[in-house]
Nucleic acid binder design. Structure first.
Length: 433
RNA sequence: GGGGAGAUACCAAAGUGGCCAACUGGGGCAGACUGUAAAUCUGCUGGCUGAUGCCUUCGUAGGUUCGAAUCCUGCUCUCCCCA
C-alpha cells in the first residue's frame, strides 16, 4: 500500500464516517503527520479502541507518520460527547504507569523504533497543558473561538437541550477547546495536519481545525471513522464480565479468542474489514464462502485467529483453539475424565479457577453450599438455585437437575478437579487441594 | 436572589396510607430452537430460607400513624424558568 490508496482502502472497509474536504489531496501530496487520542484511564487498551489502533496502523503502512496521543490532561476533564461522568484526576505516577502500558501495547501495532522517516510517536497532552495557566489559555486560545461556535456543536446542544436532565459544567464545555488546542500544539510543533478519531469526536476535531485556521491560518484536516456497533444494538467490546482488554492479564487469550469467535454473522462481515489487514480480495472470498456455509463460521474463526495472533501470539492462539475444542466439542463426562492432567490444565489456563480443600467434600456437600458458599463461583445462593431450576448449570459436562445434588470425592476429575459450567459458555474450574 | 419541578431497583418509568420486594419497558442471566450466530418463544432478575416464612430497600435524617415509597418537618442534590 502507499499513500495514494489509503482513503480508498478505508472507504472500502467502511471506515470513513466523515472526511474534511482536501484531506485526500493532502495525503496524496506528501507524507503527512496525523494523530489519534487515547484515554489513559487504565494501563491497558481494550477492544473499543481497536478500530482506532488499526486506523493508525494502516496510516503508517500507507507511508504516513502516526502520533498516538494519550490524554493525560483531557482524560481528567471528561468529554461531554460520551456519556462519561465527571472524571477523577489521575496522579502523575498512575498516569505514567498507564502511559507505559499503553505504549507497550501500541508497539505491537505501530513502529516506534526503527529509523524510518514515518516512525510512530507517542505524546501526552499533560506535558504541554500542565504548566499552561488558565489566564494564558483563555487569552491565547479562548480568544480565537466564539462561544457561539462552541455552542453549535452537537455534543453541547444535546446537553443544553430541554430533554437533557444533566446540564453541563463549564469544565465539560471547555473540553473541546482543550482538545482543539492539542491539535494546534501538534500542528505547530510536529507539523501534524490531520486528526483522526471516532465519529463522536468530529465536533472536537473541527474545533481544532478551526483553531489552527483562525490562529495561524494553517491547514488542518480530519477523518472520523464510524462507531463500531453490534447488530443487536448492544455495546461493542463488552461481555458479561466487562471490557475485553488487550492485556492478557486482564483478558486471557482464551477469552479474547472466544470474544471474537462469538461475533454474529452480520457483525463479522463488518469486523473482518475493520479489524484485520487481510486484503479486500481475500475478504470478498471469505464472505462468499461464509454465506454458502454459515454454520462453518469461517469469518468468525478467521477474525478470532487474526486478532489473537496480532494482540497475543501464535502460541496463545493455538492454546485457545485447543481449549475451545475440548470445552465446546461434544465432550462428555467420560471424555473429560480421560484427559491427562497436563492437557487438562493447559486447556483450563484461561478459565477462572477456584480452590477448595479436600476435607470439605469428602463426605459430600450440597451443590449450592459448595458453589455459593465454600467457593464463590456464584455470589448468591438464591441466584444459583434459580439457575439450577432453569436448567442452566452443569457439573463435569452433566446437567444438574436439582439443587439438592451432593458433590462427593467420587465426582472429581483426575481425583482433584471439578468443572462447573453456567449456561453454554461460562466455565469455571475448581481445584481440590 | 425569586419562582417552579423533581430524586423509586442496572437504566427508563409507574405507584401518592395497607392488596408493594414495588406495574411496565429496556438491559442482563438462563431454557428451547440453532452454528458457541441472528431472530423468535419461555422463565428468572434485592438478600437469606426447601416453593411457606423472615430480613434490608423508594435521596437523607427525623416525625405522624396500628401501618408509609406514599402524609409532615429539617437537610443534601438535580433540572427548568425569571432576574
Amino acid at each position: 500500500m502507499n499513500f495514494k490508496d489509503f482513503i480508498e482502502d478505508l472507504n472500502w472497509r467502511g471506515m470513513i464516517h466523515d472526511i474534511m474536504p482536501g484531506t485526500e489531496e493532502q495525503l496524496k501530496k506528501e507524507m503527512t503527520v496525523a494523530y489519534i487520542g487515547f484515554d489513559p484511564t487504565s494501563d491497558s487498551l481494550h477492544v473499543g479502541s481497536f478500530a482506532q489502533i488499526m486506523l493508525l496502523k494502516r496510516f503508517q503502512l500507507a507511508g504516513h507518520k502516526p502520533i498516538a496521543l494519550v490524554g493525560g490532561a483531557t482524560g481528567m476533564i471528561g468529554d461531554p460527547s460520551g456519556k462519561s461522568q465527571e472524571r477523577n484526576l489521575l496522579d502523575e505516577a498512575t498516569l505514567n504507569k498507564n502511559l507505559e502500558g499503553i505504549k507497550a501495547q501500541l508497539s505491537k501495532f505501530l513502529d516506534f523504533d526503527s529509523d524510518i522517516p514515518n516512525k510512530a510517536e507517542m505524546v501526552n497532552n499533560y506535558d504541554w497543558m500542565k504548566n499552561y495557566t488558565f489566564l494564558e489559555f483563555i487569552r491565547d486560545i479562548g480568544k480565537h473561538i466564539t462561544v457561539n461556535y462552541m455552542m453549535s456543536k452537537d455534543s453541547v446542544k444535546k446537553r443544553l437541550g430541554e430533554e437533557s436532565k444533566q446540564g453541563m459544567s463549564f469544565t465539560e464545555f471547555t473540553y473541546q477547546l482543550v482538545q482543539g488546542y492539542d491539535f494546534l500544539y501538534l500542528n505547530e510543533h510536529k507539523n501534524c495536519k490531520l486528526q483522526m478519531g471516532g465519529s463522536d469526536q468530529w465536533g472536537n476535531i473541527t474545533t481544532g481545525t478551526e483553531l489552527i485556521r483562525r490562529k495561524n491560518g494553517g491547514e488542518a484536516y480530519a477523518i472520523t471513522i464510524p462507531l463500531v456497533t453490534k447488530a443487536d444494538g448492544g455495546k461493542f467490546g463488552k461481555t458479561e464480565s466487562g471490557n475485553v482488554w488487550l492485556d492478557s492479564e486482564k483478558t486471557t487469550p482464551y477469552s479474547f479468542y472466544q470474544f471474537w469467535l462469538n461475533t454474529s454473522d452480520e457483525d463479522a462481515n463488518k469486523y473482518i474489514k475493520i479489524f484485520t489487514l487481510i486484503d479486500p480480495q481475500e475478504i470478498e472470498t471469505l464472505i462468499e464462502q461464509h454465506s454458502k456455509e454459515p454454520h462453518m463460521r469461517i469469518l468468525q474463526k478467521r477474525l478470532a485467529e487474526e486478532l489473537t495472533v496480532m494482540v497475543h501470539s501464535k502460541k496463545d492462539l493455538e492454546n485457545a483453539i485447543e481449549a475451545s475444542k475440548i470445552l465446546f466439542g461434544k465432550g462428555t463426562t467420560e471424555s473429560l475424565a480421560k484427559l491427562d492432567e497436563k492437557t487438562f490444565l493447559s486447556v483450563f489456563e484461561g478459565v477462572p479457577q477456584f480452590e477448595l480443600s479436600k476435607e470439605k467434600i469428602i463426605n459430600g456437600l450440597g451443590i449450592v453450599d459448595l458453589l455459593a458458599g465454600e467457593v464463590n463461583v456464584f455470589p448468591s445462593k438464591g441466584e444459583l438455585r434459580r439457575l439450577i431450576q432453569g436448567g442452566g448449570l452443569s457439573l463435569n459436562n452433566a446437567k444438574i437437575e436439582n439443587a439438592d445434588v451432593k458433590v462427593a470425592s467420587t465426582d472429581l476429575l483426575n481425583n482433584k478437579y471439578l468443572l462447573v459450567q453456567k449456561g453454554k459458555k461460562d466455565k469455571y474450574l475448581i481445584i481440590i487441594k
